[in-house]
Design a protein around this nucleic acid. Structure first.
Length: 1048
RNA sequence: GCGGAUGUGGCGUAAUUGGUAGCCGCGCCAGACUUAGGAUCUGGUGUCGUGAGACGUGGGGGUUCGAGUCCCUUCAUCCGCACCA
């Protein structure tokens, strides 16, 4: 029987499910291996072929590890909260849970058809109360923790309270928001509310008024990683800065550990680099500059209030070159220090800067703008007064929102100084160069290489030495310290949306408190609409009785998407536990994820939050490893390959084709195109033949016959009016014949009346020369195209208006064009896996997706190669069957050649699996099957092993053959065959013999032949004489079992 | 502008340690079979050249007996970041 993939695949999928073949449990003593796919969000569109690429790879690796004796954890579940379902709910009123449920079912159905080895008993969904109970629980732990810098870990807030009660906050080594210093007695005198407000500055989950990314279109705030270039990543809506009170996670406390941890994990360099950039650690110093002569009257009375501007700089060494200062427009000191005479201009600048969108600000980076405040500060090292400016190239969100400007050694400061004619002083000298007058410079010298000049006590030092000297001196004088600054911001954790986890938080006296853990989960309430209330409160404010049993009102924000996905890999270890997040036993056995597979788009979002989440739980003693994902592989994107048909513009085509026939004196007379005479314009005109030719639709021509004839007669010209339809019927040749006749002076009718045809679309095959001059490319559904050939009948049925289409073919075929683009519905290039499985089966799809190329590389999806893989599957099947396709294997002992093929393949496939080179492994299978077919090998001893080898890639056919071979149990529980080198060794080696590095011939010699004898044998070979040309060789290089190179 | 990655036949790719460039597959060409099909099988297929042979891994240069692989330089494409002090 010819291989019936449909039947076989269905059969085994059902058996696997019925027997729970992929159910996993802890087996003490057996080595574990945890393979995880990135949490999918099941959208309404279902899977396209790009999604399963990673799943297939991880499934192959899971199955392989299982064959190698590992206890493999390979779960799957869904990130089920998300904006699309909620947007749909807003539009239609359908509860997002319903939409989500539908999408999940469809997703699951598609996944099942591909034959994955997931343990579905471990499935989790973020929107399931049994799951989000633990998301809420983690939030409570964050709320009740603070970060101890000294111990470098999170500690309970209760410890903090004890410290405040005994010694106040001055000596507490915490990462916290700015908090006034208080003593133990000060703490005790505070009201509960005041104490809670203080504690809020320390908590790892805290409520604060901050500038947030507000997206009006989505009606919610977004985290930094959810915004790109001023637009929301999801949906592409504009985002603006807005001050709001929001929950935040103090991820910045972990900045250093998040950075350090990158050195311990096996991730691609590019993702690590993206994370490093995102964390943005920079080392430098913080320095305070005193502002001179403040207008004291503004503070009511002649106090001695000292105002200082604090700056952060990575180049404290250049302080002697700091000739002015710049504050961000939003800086709190701006209004305080601005002199009355400058106030008007400053205010104008402030309102201009404020009204500028984020977008404008980003695109106009190169435009220099700013305003002088009138104030001066003292450079603490030069003791010179330097002007204080405001400018929006200084960002409030980074450092202190103020800088000391060193125009000689910072390109932005340089541009600013030039624009406003501020002084530039050189303080670093380029090694090996003389100092020059900065007036002559075209750009600043930003390098960290050089010797200090004009710099007081650091003059003559190297930059590096100068940096530490200045920091030391600043610390001594109490005007600054060494400081490390991060670009990373705390993560905004509130969303003004319905479809997300409710916060386990209620408000008492305006202060937030967390619910007791035994009241979790706090379930998402029902609402009458998924929109904000009239007063702009989030949708949860619509819920009836959204209060605790004591009557305190509950938080109306919900958590963001990354809340549920940050710790899901932990929950898979023990997914049905209702007492704990996960048991101690489970986490100490499964530890962390060994192999994590997913797209690179989560580089700064999920992958950073999950690492933070895990580290926090590690500090609390729940997780057992610092890093959640040991090895990360980012599968490349699958792009779409669009197909095009070319719709002819008949008028343009007729003109183009005709011109090709009459231009360059081809008919013996010269023609010009687009001839003009006054207001009249004609398509072609030959002054020699006094002939005008006009090509148009019959309808247009009819109207023109009269005026044109009149005109032609008045000028003594001949006139030909050719309806476009003539080019198709009777055809271009007949048209040319008429023109030739007219040139010869024969009597040719001006216009032969013709009925215009109904306008039908005309499509021309791709390779007609000149086609691009008269046709437009239109996307055509890729399912109507095979190997770039259009299925014309199917195309006509595709859309009603194409029904009567005409085609201009090449060799009776219509060839389509193609282009690589994003896979999208509107481009008709979406390939859905179900169609391919229907036609070729899941095994072929799995093999083909792997065969496409290296896993991490992006590539266009092109089905033209799938036939080859399909052929391989059938050829593989035929190895086990005789001519009449009856199952037939022999029990005979295999011969050496067969064993060699098998073991060569075992070795290759094992190595390829280990290095995730699945494309080359598929090649190896093809080679193996080709060679065994050649050898007519149907021996059980060989084929049994081969089936195991193939099973991770093509599990269904492998399972069927495994059973036909008479084995007990499932092939997925078999043992990976052992490679035996003795079967692959040869006793001869075909040496490639090169002359001057160019391969000329091969020479078969015994493997163990000594070098000297090889040389003799090579030089004695008859082919060698030709290349030696009678001369003795200069040198002979022999690498045993590799190569011979003769230098002449 | 900065950072990262990638450039090999008509196409997807292979070459794991510096050692026969182009494996495997698609496509194409020729042939066989045939109930004409988008089936199967066989052979061929980097470029130029009738040929011996020459050339050939984006371009240029270098190291080496030998370079797709190492070094320098340059170009192109893709991705990420971008006033980050």
């Amino acid at each position: 029987m010819e291989y019936n993939f449909g039947e076989v695949e269905k059969k085994w999928q059902e058996k696997w499910a019925a027997d729970k073949v992929y159910k996993t449990s802890i087996v003490e003593g057996k080595p574990k291996y945890y393979v995880l796919d990135m949490f999918p969000y099941p959208s309404g569109a279902g899977l396209h072929v790009g999604h399963p690429l990673g799943y297939i790879a991880s499934d192959i690796f899971s199955r392989y590890k299982k064959l190698k004796g590992f206890n493999v954890l390979h779960p799957m579940g869904y990130d089920a909260y998300g904006l699309p379902a909620e947007q749909y709910a807003i539009q239609t009123g359908t509860h997002p849970a319903i939409t989500t449920e539908l999408n999940l079912a469809r997703y699951r159905e598609q996944l099942d058809k591909i034959g994955f080895s997931y343990d579905w008993d471990r499935e989790v969904r973020t929107c399931d109360p049994a799951y989000y109970k633990w998301t809420q629980w983690t939030f409570i732990q964050l709320f009740n923790s603070w970060y101890n810098k000294q111990l470098d870990m999170a500690r309970p807030v209760s410890e903090l309270i004890t410290a405040f009660e005994t010694e106040g906050n001055a000596a507490v080594p915490a990462v916290c928001n700015e908090t006034p210093v208080f003593s133990a007695s000060g703490w005790k005198q505070m009201s509960e509310k005041e104490q809670q407000e203080i504690l809020m500055n320390y908590r790892l989950a805290y409520l604060a008024e901050t500038a947030v990314n507000w997206c009006p279109a989505l009606g919610t705030v977004l985290a930094n990683d959810e915004v790109s270039e001023g637009y929301s990543v999801r949906g592409g809506h504009p985002v603006e800065r807005k001050k709001m009170k929001q929950w935040l996670l103090r991820i910045t406390a972990y900045a250093d550990r998040l950075l350090e941890g990158l050195n311990t994990i096996d991730w691609s360099e590019s993702i690590k680099e993206i994370q490093r950039n995102w964390i943005g650690r920079s080392e430098g110093g913080s320095m305070r500059f005193e502002v001179m002569n403040l207008p004291l009257s503004r503070f009511g009375g002649g106090g001695t209030s000292k105002t200082e501007i604090e700056v952060f700089t990575t180049r404290p060494d250049t302080i002697f070159g700091a000739t002015f200062m710049v504050l961000a427009p939003e800086h709190e000191l701006v209004s305080k220090i601005t002199k009355p005479e400058c106030r008007k201009k400053v205010d104008t600048y402030l309102s201009w800067a404020k009204n500028r969108s984020e977008r404008e600000r980003m695109t106009e980076v190169k435009k220099v703008s700013g305003e002088f405040t009138g104030a001066y500060a003292i450079n603490p090292f030069t003791n010179q007064p330097i002007p204080v400016w405001i400018a929006d190239y200084v960002l409030m969100g980074y450092g202190t929102g103020a800088i000391m400007a060193v125009p000689a050694h910072d390109s932005r400061d340089f541009a600013f100084a030039r624009h406003f004619s501020l002084p530039v002083v050189q303080v670093v000298n380029k090694p090996g160069h003389e100092a020059t007058d900065p007036v002559t410079w075209d750009e600043s010298y930003d390098s960290k290489e050089g010797i200090m000049i004009n710099s007081g006590f650091i003059t003559g030092m190297q930059v590096k030495e100068a940096i530490s000297s200045v920091i030391r001196e600043s610390e001594k004088r109490g005007i600054g310290t060494g400081k490390i600054n991060f670009r990373l911001r705390d993560a905004i954790f509130s969303r003004q949306r319905y479809w997300g986890e409710p916060f386990p938080v209620y408000y008492k006296d305006g202060m937030p408190y967390t619910l007791p853990e035994d009241q979790l989960p706090l379930q998402l309430p029902e609402v009458d609409a998924y929109l904000p209330t009239e007063n702009g409160e989030p949708p949860l404010a619509r819920a009836k009785n959204w209060k605790t049993s004591e009557g305190y009102s509950l938080e109306t924000n919900t958590m963001p998407g990354f809340a549920g996905s940050s710790g899901y890999y932990l929950r898979y270890m023990d997914p049905r536990n209702d007492k704990e997040y996960f048991s101690k036993e489970a986490v100490s056995y499964w530890q962390n994820v060994d192999l994590y597979l997913g797209g690179a788009e989560h580089a700064t979002g999920h992958l950073l939050y999950a690492r933070f989440w895990n580290k926090f739980l590690f500090d609390l003693g729940y997780t057992v490893t610092e890093e959640p994902f040991q090895k990360l592989i980012n599968q490349g994107m699958i792009q779409g390959r669009s197909s095009f048909v070319y719709r002819v513009n008949p008028e343009k085509m007729a003109e183009y084709v005709l011109w090709e026939r009459i231009k360059d004196n081809k008919l013996g007379v010269k023609f010009v195109q687009d001839y003009r005479d006054g207001n009249r314009k004609f398509d072609y005109f030959s002054p020699e033949a006094k002939l005008i030719i006009e090509v148009k639709k019959p309808k247009s021509l009819e109207k023109l016959v009269e005026p044109y004839t009149e005109y032609a007669e008045s000028k003594g010209y001949k006139l030909l009016m050719i309806p476009m339809i003539d080019f198709i019927e009777p055809g271009i040749d007949k048209v040319v014949e008429r023109i030739v006749a007219a040139i010869k002076g024969e009597d040719v009718p001006v216009y032969i009346e013709k009925k215009g045809l109904d306008p039908v679309p005309i499509f021309i095959s791709k390779n007609y020369s000149g086609r691009e001059n008269y046709s437009d490319a239109l996307h055509v559904d890729i399912n109507l195209v095979h190997n770039d050939m259009l299925d014309i009948e199917a195309f006509k049925q595709w859309q009603p208006h194409l029904n009567k289409s005409l085609f201009i073919l090449e060799d009776g075929k219509y060839f389509c064009g193609s282009e690589v683009e994003k896979m999208s519905k509107s481009k008709y290039n979406v390939q859905n896996p179900d169609d391919l499985i229907e036609r070729y089966g899941a095994d072929t799809l799995r093999l083909y997706e792997m065969f496409l190329g290296p896993l991490e590389q992006s590539k266009p999806w092109d089905t033209s190669g799938i036939e080859g893989v399909f052929r391989f599957i059938r050829k593989f099947w035929r190895l086990f069957h005789d001519h009449d396709i009856n199952f037939s294997v022999s029990g005979e002992a295999p011969i050496a050649a067969e064993l060699k093929v098998l073991h060569k393949t075992i070795k290759k496939v094992q190595e390829d699996n280990e290095r995730f080179s699945f494309n080359t492994a598929v090649s190896a299978f093809m080679i193996c099957v080709n060679e065994l077919t050649e050898l007519k090998c149907n021996k059980r001893a060989i084929l049994n092993e081969l089936v195991v080898l193939v099973s991770p890639y093509a599990p269904h056919i492998a399972e069927e053959l495994w059973q036909l071979l008479g084995n007990k149990g499932y092939v997925c529980n078999a043992v990976f065959p052992e490679y035996k080198p003795e079967f692959t060794v040869d006793n001869t080696f075909a040496y490639p013999v090169s002359f001057n590095g160019k391969m000329r011939f091969t020479l078969e010699l015994p493997v163990d032949m000594p070098v000297l004898e090889i040389e003799k044998a090579v030089l004695a070979a008859s082919e060698a004489q030709k290349w030696l040309g009678g001369l003795p060789p200069k040198k002979v290089i022999i690498v045993p079992r590799k190569i011979v190179n003769v230098v002449v």
